[in-house]
Nucleic acid binder design. Structure first.
Lengths: 237, 237
DNA sequence: CCATACTCTTGGTATATACCAGGCAGGTGG
DNA sequence: CCACCTGCCTGGTATATACCAAGAGTATGG
């Protein structure tokens, strides 16, 4: 079976990671130190580290080191609970940074919502953290007619969907989701503090209200092991 | 920006892949050939190949070579259209292999469905192909009381869910889904003809009927870039 | 004619080594 | 006291090379 040395190495590292996790030490020793300790080269060691990264056990922070990964976040993209709420509900610490807001046309949003390509949107781009680790970069485009004055409101500390319901009485009735494993592109990767090409999960959502009027389109880019998607459905024949 | 040579190399390879795809040539030249052609080493070349693999552009077949990847399959885990139907609907060629059937208890299934751990299930393990490439390894456990005689039926060429509806009049009313990026373990990896640790997507489903009686639990392991998950929801408040 | 054995090709694993570039802390000068 | 600079530490990229193991086709012998 496990003829390859790096498989054995991976198991040894797994033990090390468990130990570190047990004593709440989040960081692994330097690659050179580990390679010397296991009497191998950095190349082979990095192969094992990459393997564990693929399993979601550890992650890297650009030129800072390797860190033990926390358990994934449970996330239901069909519920409109605010990010802050469900992160806190899982005993984790949420944070949100708004990177950009503007008002302009956006072709993919228009196409997804079935609007003309010169339709303008309220656009919000933000970055979200769990326990101070950036795990999500998202952009959302809201149809201004559905939520006039949105960008003047406090759209960060309160749930956006909660506001759409509360302030504008919208029912988010029809939703379309698309999930896809991707490699993070330069911009998202930079925002999440990882190398371009790191594995990610892309979530795109298109939302209409009860009268089938277009409400919102958004694109999320998650660090792929940061979340576990759960969906509960009733009566969808 | 792209100081690293392997980034440049990745772009060159991307062009090559497009060319190959255009002339319907699915296979890339050997690593040694490519390395020589781009005047670099296999190590660096493999780094670029791994990058493209992460993007889902190419995939490898154990010691046979690198191949251009087909576009992902659209898949809606909330619909009970049969695998064969929606693969064909997308102009692809489906195939299913039953690897194993038996009848015995299974703890995870029992727990997910809220049954006692000594509950027995009809268990089917199978492997599914798209255009002769194995993309999915799945195991499903059906509560025998819901579908007596299931294993005697032709559960391969017809949709399983179609049978549950047609032969036993079941409505698959309540479903719970769980999606998670994973590294394929030895067994699934072998069944899919890839190396252990290859990126995969795990889908677990728990299904109850209209009377909230447990019907089925299943675990799917997909090659992660083989599919794009789409979900359409109505009126889920 | 078929099965077996050989051999070539392919990717997979591994060592040894070098230099680059960004994070970060500690020192230094204004 | 603060801003900048310097240098060390880290992971990131790259070369050169070797041998292993499984796939695949070919030659060979019954």
């Amino acid at each position: 079976m496990s003829d390859a040395y790096y498989i054995h190495l991976t198991e040894r590292l797994r033990e090390l990671i468990n130990d570190l996790d047990a004593c709440e030490e989040g960081r692994l020793p330097a690659e050179r130190t580990l390679a010397e300790h296991f009497r191998t080269t950095r190349v082979t060691l990095r192969q094992a580290l990459a393997h564990l990264e693929g399993e979601g056990r550890i992650h890297r922070s650009n030129r800072r080191g390797w860190f033990v990964s926390p358990p994934p976040l449970d996330y239901d993209p069909t519920r409109d609970a605010g990010f802050n709420d469900y992160v806190k509900a899982q005993g984790r610490r949420p944070r949100t940074e708004v990177l950009l807001t503007d008002t302009r046309p956006h072709r993919p949003a228009a196409e997804a919502l079935g609007l003309s390509t010169d339709q303008t949107f309220f656009h919000i781009r933000r970055r979200r953290f769990v326990d101070d680790r950036a795990v999500l970069s998202e952009s959302l485009w809201v149809v201004p007619e559905r939520a006039p004055g949105l960008l003047e409101g406090d759209y960060v500390s309160h749930s956006l969907w909660g506001q759409l319901r509360g302030r504008w009485g919208l029912t988010l009735a029809h939703r379309s989701l698309r999930l896809y494993s991707e490699a993070l592109r330069a911009q998202e990767a930079e925002e999440l503090g990882v190398a371009a090409g790191t594995a990610g999960l892309s979530v795109r959502r298109t939302i209409f209200d009860a009268r089938r009027r277009p409400v919102e389109y958004d694109e999320e880019h998650w660090l792929h092991h940061a979340l576990c998607i759960t969906v509960d459905l009733e009566n969808t024949s």
